[in-house]
Design a protein around this nucleic acid. Structure first.
Lengths: 149, 149
DNA sequence: CTCTGTGCAAACACTTTGCAGCTAA
DNA sequence: TTAGCTGCAAAGTGTTTGCACAGAG
């Protein structure tokens, strides 16, 4: 990412913080900068190691909490499914998954056009793809109702 | 699932076990039956609670190990991403994820046709979809090479 | 009989919580 | 000034490992 794009992102981050009434602490900037300067989809631990280089006193907890805060204001995303206990699926039939981000439930749905997605040549050539699926996240019926209570 | 389909699945499971030289233990049958009799995408803990009803002496470890074994012979799947430490993504640009099941690395790719997948009315009406993406799993370039060594 | 699978216990890794002092606004 | 943030420590949850005995083949 070039310097220009980075500055824009940081401005956007500041705006989101202010909108949510969050304080602009040095730790938050440092964590956010570390996050947007990598495309490795880091764990909290990895960000921690990176940030410590310039801010040795920061704690892993702060990094953890900051990252969660970032996802709440939309400045970061959690890679689908990660951070949850392992869940198993014994169905061999074609289906796709919807994860409710509130109650954590995984709901199956089946939309036949999603069963055989066409991948670009670029991917097929590079990776050995063993599984391909459409993945949705959001609020399930029950949790949408809870919201309005 | 009807009785017929269940029997077929269990036959298939037996076949896979034999093919891989795995013993057909009562625990394995019990775990597999519990798994295919639910569509809740259970955690190991949930399967454990279920299996204990008919086999009180089984241990959680065995359930855990059995479930992992099932995924290895293709009789079960791990719901995408679950069971791994939380990973963050600071990119707001459209992109999709490929997970290497061997080294655990998440690799971004971007195939514009995947940016705006059309969902069926059935889903849009029922859930509040906040995120939709195509998700791939398989072996990355580096790990494919390792395989042939 | 043999070797894999199981149950148990301990270790480990990741995440969450509670609290006291600090700091951005 | 003060509400929110940070760092530390402890507890909680989920997963892995090592080992001795049991049971499937």
């Amino acid at each position: 990412m070039d310097k220009q794009a980075q500055t824009l992102k940081i401005k956007d981050f500041e705006r989101r913080c202010r909108q949510s009434g969050l304080k602009l602490t040095p730790q938050r900037f440092a964590v956010y900068r570390a996050l947007i300067n990598t495309d490795a989809h880091p764990t909290a631990e990895a960000i921690y190691q990176e940030v410590r280089k310039e801010m040795p006193a920061i704690s892993l907890d702060t990094v953890n909490r900051t990252l969660l805060t970032l996802t709440e204001i939309g400045s970061a995303f959690i890679v689908e499914g990660t951070g949850q206990p392992r869940r198993f699926d014994g169905g061999l039939e074609d289906h796709q998954h919807f994860l409710c981000i509130k109650c954590g439930k995984v709901i199956d749905f089946h939309h036949p056009p999603f069963d055989n997605i066409q991948l670009p040549q670029e991917i097929e050539g590079k990776f050995k793809v063993l599984r391909k699926t459409v993945y949705l996240e959001g609020l399930c019926e029950a949790c949408q109702k809870k919201d309005t209570l």
